[in-house]
Computed example of a mutant assay.
Amino acid sequence: MLVVVIAACEVGFWVVLAAGLVARYPLRMRRTGAVLLLGVPVVDLVLLVTTVVDLRGGATAGFAHGLAAAYLGYSIAFGHSMVRWADERFAHRFAGGPPPRGKPRYGWARARYEWVEFGKAALATAIGCGLLLMMIALVGDHDRTVALTGWTARLGLVLAVWSLWPITHTLWPSRPKKGAASPPPAERARPR
Results as ranks from 00 to 15, higher is better:
residue 3 V to Y: 14
residue 4 V to G: 15
residue 6 I to V: 14
residue 9 C to V: 15
residue 9 C to F: 01
residue 11 V to N: 00
residue 12 G to C: 03
residue 14 W to A: 11
residue 15 V to R: 06
residue 17 L to H: 03
residue 17 L to G: 08
residue 18 A to V: 12
residue 19 A to S: 11
residue 19 A to D: 03
residue 20 G to W: 01
residue 26 P to D: 14
residue 27 L to S: 10
residue 30 R to H: 10
residue 31 R to K: 15
residue 32 T to S: 08
residue 33 G to E: 06
residue 37 L to V: 08
residue 37 L to H: 06
residue 38 L to F: 08
residue 41 P to T: 10
residue 42 V to C: 11
residue 42 V to N: 05
residue 43 V to S: 07
residue 43 V to E: 03
residue 44 D to C: 05
residue 45 L to M: 10
residue 47 L to P: 03
residue 47 L to Q: 02
residue 53 V to W: 13
residue 54 D to I: 04
residue 58 G to P: 04
residue 58 G to T: 08
residue 59 A to H: 00
residue 62 G to M: 12
residue 63 F to T: 15
residue 63 F to W: 10
residue 64 A to R: 02
residue 69 A to K: 01
residue 69 A to S: 13
residue 70 A to Y: 02
residue 72 L to E: 03
residue 74 Y to T: 08
residue 76 I to F: 13
residue 78 F to I: 11
residue 78 F to R: 06
residue 79 G to C: 11
residue 83 V to N: 07
residue 85 W to V: 01
residue 87 D to I: 07
residue 88 E to L: 11
residue 89 R to D: 01
residue 89 R to Y: 04
residue 94 F to E: 09
residue 96 G to E: 07
residue 96 G to Q: 05
residue 102 G to K: 06
residue 106 Y to K: 06
residue 110 R to M: 02
residue 111 A to V: 04
residue 114 E to T: 12
residue 114 E to S: 10
residue 116 V to S: 04
residue 116 V to H: 12
residue 116 V to E: 11
residue 117 E to R: 02
residue 117 E to D: 13
residue 118 F to E: 08
residue 126 A to Y: 01
residue 128 G to I: 03
residue 129 C to R: 00
residue 133 L to M: 15
residue 134 M to F: 11
residue 135 M to T: 03
residue 137 A to H: 11
residue 141 D to S: 12
residue 142 H to V: 14
residue 142 H to T: 13
residue 142 H to W: 13
residue 146 V to F: 03
residue 146 V to S: 12
residue 146 V to L: 10
residue 154 R to W: 13
residue 157 L to Q: 10
residue 157 L to V: 10
residue 159 L to I: 00
residue 159 L to R: 02
residue 160 A to V: 13
residue 160 A to Q: 05
residue 161 V to H: 08
residue 163 S to P: 05
residue 165 W to S: 11
residue 166 P to S: 07
residue 169 H to L: 11
residue 169 H to R: 13
residue 171 L to F: 06
residue 172 W to K: 09
residue 172 W to C: 02
residue 174 S to H: 03
residue 178 K to V: 10
residue 179 G to H: 04
residue 183 P to I: 02
residue 183 P to C: 09
residue 184 P to M: 06
residue 184 P to Y: 07
residue 184 P to H: 07
residue 185 P to T: 13
residue 189 A to H: 01
